[in-house]
Design a protein around this nucleic acid. Sequence first.
DNA 1: TGCTATTCGTACTGTGTGGTACCAAAACAA
DNA 2: TTGTTTTGGTACCACACAGTACGAATAGCA
Lengths: 201, 201
Amino acid sequence: MSEADPKPTRGRPKTMNAEQVLDVAMTAYWQSDPADVSVNAICQMAGISKPSLYREFGSEDGLSRAALDRYAEQVLSEMFVILNGGTGLRATLDALIDFASDDPRMETGCLFYKMRAGKHRLGPDTKVRVEEIDAAGQAAYAAFLQAARDAREWPDGLSVEAGAKYLGEQIALAITQRASGEDPARIREMLTLALSVFTRP
Amino acid sequence: MSEADPKPTRGRPKTMNAEQVLDVAMTAYWQSDPADVSVNAICQMAGISKPSLYREFGSEDGLSRAALDRYAEQVLSEMFVILNGGTGLRATLDALIDFASDDPRMETGCLFYKMRAGKHRLGPDTKVRVEEIDAAGQAAYAAFLQAARDAREWPDGLSVEAGAKYLGEQIALAITQRASGEDPARIREMLTLALSVFTRP
DNA sequence: TGCTATTCGTACTGTGTGGTACCAAAACAA
DNA sequence: TTGTTTTGGTACCACACAGTACGAATAGCA
């Protein structure tokens, strides 16, 4: 939160609710695809004019970056909670599988993964934010696996970094398949198979 | 080849080489992304006018469909050859891992997977073709796994269909990661890990 | 020399995009 | 009342896109 609007004492009172606009944008980007949602469409959905949106967010890049920030706070944080739960290897993996395969919030996929998949189409600020979140995710997966290794729950033979990357990509794959309408039971079956490498000799 | 041009005996001789244009289009779609290559750009790269291209392919959909057909013949066929090699479970899986992780042709990814990932942006004909190829791939993976099961090389506990889907998605994931510049050694490591579920008790 | 058939490319259409110039509306301060 | 400040939205800009109308060019046939 670097933005601090001191609420000007003069001037025409603003009718636009930035939070609500951001919510509309985030939802639209999320439910369809960031590349398929235009600024015009968002203005129409939010019931505001284009100059109003540009006054608030500066550019399309600013808007999508703000939407991604909001998504990270509201949704992605849940995944970090699961990873930092400290409930042991098997329980945490199961929780991740549940989240990716059956959580209704992931029914139309994950905004972050959608943005990452179309990274080259993003504006510079949003792109940077995507890379930051990606790195944070990697680190969280790595910390989780390192803890499991420390607790002797996970055998050697694979580096923590490689395991973290593998785990992250399998989760991403599962959630991306949710977005394409795949049967959740099938997704769960495949993700369970993919992650079984962590819990077998 | 349903197109049979009887080579008209009259009229201005055509200077456009359809094969070469198709090659330019296929390469452009492949190296970058079908959604990021415009008809204008292809015309410029191929050194022809837009009406010439539309006379030959009818529409953007026709062009991308033709490019995908060409790609299936020239590149994708290689994967079917590997799958039908009949060299046993382990050897075939290793060949698939080699192809996905290190074959220079997959250095910028796979046109089919790129089209499949952005299916909703394709024209109807191209979309249908993508779905056909997807189904054919599924069937080939399934036949391969069924053969392995018949030869007692692969234990029960997972349906052939689920295994085929899993195998196909892991290959797709690996090749997609190639396109995003991931280290081939890392990709090989992860793909090997993912496919180890087929060769371990 | 026409006449017909086919391909050529210039120049256009209409639509959608991200982004903005500009002025009216609405508040407080003088 | 008269400025000043801020927000509002209409109407525009330039650009890129897919697709096309149309006349010039080039061939064989009469």
